[in-house]
Design a binder for these strands. Structure first.
Lengths: 248, 248
DNA sequence: CACACGCTTTGATTCACATCAAAGCCACGT
DNA sequence: ACGTGGCTTTGATGTGAATCAAAGCGTGTG
């Protein structure tokens, strides 16, 4: 776990995020097959490759900021990021956690409607939107892929509205745990790189309620706490039932 | 206001919604310029025209049903519809109200992830998805238009997550009132064709809380009740501040 | 090694909204 | 005109999660 940067969310820095070229190009990219890039053949991918800037962000660094001009779109290649919106008095809603392969910045507004920050160390491919639009004109497959990704996002957004509007705290936390990506080989282990406060702001709860709810799951032997950051699922059936809203 | 149809949500009827051809084609369509159809010139629009079935639905009739095979997409041309998801025990979240020009059924899943019902009498253009995809291949402008509509939807979805997760009952109701379309000539009149129960399920509240909150607004002279269905805004500044989350 | 800082957990109390209950209101059909 | 059914409003009470408060815990640092 990295140390916090305190109040250093200086999004207005001319160039947040360090540029870097690692040796290999798109062919070796970890999200070659899961991101929007899957729409293009290796040869056609070179166009995207040429248009991309590779950037890195440390935990809590701002990737993009609500109300800044929306000139760029991003492809997350490594790490976890959070997307959030704020109310004037500081109340925050995290509208999503991004994982490798996720696309960020789709929008036809002039300004971003949300902020995005790194949770863990993050790497992205950044594209100028004007350029991305040009590439889409020449490669309808890419636009098609983005539409299908947007549709999926939209379906997930609807799930989240159901969660926020109608699920109890326990159901919310259970749903959240099961929505996180898990490794094939350790299918019952859940990694929580974000803080309890982040989870709370994602679920529309307070951090105390999240913590209490997790403690409740431990008491009921539904999960076990390897560390505060690693949760081991002991009773998947019960957890799934809760998440689906069957356990009341 | 129409009478209720009681328990007649017989979505399994082979052909819900009555077919009808009104004399005029797409040129005279009320949503010609606001819907996805705006992407196509009059001549190219004929392709869509040929692919569309015009259907009508009475209040509370089901347009499409969660978990039914997602073979069709719809373009709402008249009326108001609600899109909703349910939990197994009957808790409901309305994820959106649809107005003329809105698109319904975008999704690359096999089955719909939500239901849609008419609130008022509704007219739609229905398309076979396979056919729509074929048309999109020939007309990238249409796909582009749908992507831009989906992006907008996504931005609205994020707003709604902020609302559901972090706003108070009063802020939710204020936001809702201001989100409804109003007529140019009567900019301070808000029409609520849906029930208090529908509004509650949209805002993650109970119908009693919605009613009490509206009564509160009347008491504070923020709005006036012409009829239960028509609300007149008296203090737009106050209502906007509440909706933005500035009034606490 | 000890201290400090940030995160998490746990406990006591409060409160906004839900739930339960009962009238009002209005449109429709007889 | 009257009665019925569905929606809305209002009132009394309950409760799940928020708030306020204070310990644990772990990791990096002087």
């Amino acid at each position: 776990m990295k140390t916090q940067l305190g109040s250093s969310n200086i999004h207005t820095l001319p160039e947040a995020g360090r540029k870097e070229r690692d040796g290999s190009g798109c062919e070796a990219c970890p999200v070659r097959e899961s991101s929007m890039c899957a729409a293009l053949s290796d040869t056609r991918l070179e166009v995207l490759d040429a248009a991309a800037s590779r950037l890195s962000f440390e935990p809590d660094e701002t990737i993009l900021f609500e109300s800044d001009p929306a000139d760029f779109a991003f492809n997350l290649t490594e790490g976890v990021a959070r997307v959030s919106k704020m109310l004037p008095d500081g109340r925050r809603q995290i509208t999503g956690f991004l994982h490798p392969g996720d696309f960020l910045g789709l929008s036809y507004q002039d300004c971003y409607a949300y902020s995005a920050e790194a949770v863990t160390p993050v790497k992205v491919c950044r594209f100028r939107k004007a350029e991305l639009n040009r590439i889409m004109r020449d490669h309808p497959d890419l636009e098609h892929r983005l539409l299908s990704m947007a549709s999926n996002e939209l379906a997930l957004a609807h799930d989240r509205m159901l969660l926020l509007g109608r699920k109890s705290a326990a159901e919310k936390v259970a749903s959240f745990l099961l929505s996180l990506p898990r490794k094939e080989e350790r299918i019952d282990e859940i990694d929580l790189p974000m803080t309890r406060g982040d989870i709370a702001d994602y679920l529309g709860l307070t951090l105390e309620t999240v913590s209490r709810t997790l403690s409740g799951f431990v008491r009921q032997q539904i999960v076990r706490n390897a560390t505060p950051r690693i949760i081991v699922v002991l009773d998947m059936a019960r957890l799934s039932a809760l998440a689906a809203g069957e356990g009341r």
